[in-house]
C-alpha cells in the first residue's frame, strides 16, 4: 500500500504565487471599477471594445494583472518555501478589495457628480 509519506515534499512558493496573483487580479478589478466611477477620463481609457464599453478595459486590466503577476511571482517563488499564512492573508485581503470595489453601493460613493 502506498503511503502519503512517499510523496515528494513540494515547496509552497508556486501556490503562494498563484494565490497572490489571484488576489492581485481581483484587487485590480475592484480598483479599475471604482476609478472608472471617479474619473470620466479613466472610464474612457477603459473602453477597449466599444460594444462592451469600459467593462472591457476593467476586466482586461484585471486579467492581465492576474496572469502577468502570476508569471512574475512564480519565477520569484518557484523552488522556495514562503510564509504561507502571511501570503494567504495578503491574498485574501486583495480578494476582499476586489469584492468591495465591484460592489455598487461602494463604488458609487466615488461617482463624480
Amino acid at each position: 500500500m502506498t503511503t502519503l509519506s512517499n510523496t515528494q515534499e513540494l515547496p509552497n512558493g508556486p501556490v503562494a504565487a498563484a494565490l497572490l496573483a489571484g488576489g492581485a487580479g481581483a484587487a485590480m478589478l475592484g480598483l479599475a471599477t471604482t476609478l472608472a466611477e471617479a474619473s470620466a477620463g479613466v472610464k474612457n481609457l477603459l473602453v477597449w471594445f466599444n460594444p462592451v464599453g469600459p467593462l472591457s478595459g476593467k476586466t482586461g486590466v484585471a486579467v492581465i494583472t492576474f496572469f502577468a503577476s502570476w508569471i512574475v511571482m512564480h519565477l520569484i517563488f518557484r523552488g522556495k518555501n514562503v510564509n504561507f499564512a502571511r501570503a494567504t492573508a495578503v491574498a485574501l485581503t486583495l480578494l476582499f478589495i476586489g469584492l468591495m470595489g465591484t460592489f455598487p453601493p461602494f463604488f458609487e460613493l466615488f461617482v463624480k457628480e
Binding site: L4, V15, A18, G22, A26, L29, T59, T102, F103, P104
Partner: peptide
C-alpha cells in the same frame, strides 16, 4: 454588480485548479 463580480470566479477557480494540480496527493497533508 453582476457584470463586474462575475469575473472574480474564473480567476479564483484557476488558482484552485493550479494548486491542486501542483500539489497532487501531497495536498492532503
Amino acid at each position: 454588480w453582476k457584470e463586474h463580480v462575475g469575473w472574480l470566479a474564473p480567476i479564483a477557480a484557476t488558482v484552485v485548479a493550479f494548486a491542486v494540480t501542483y500539489y497532487g496527493p501531497a495536498l492532503a497533508k
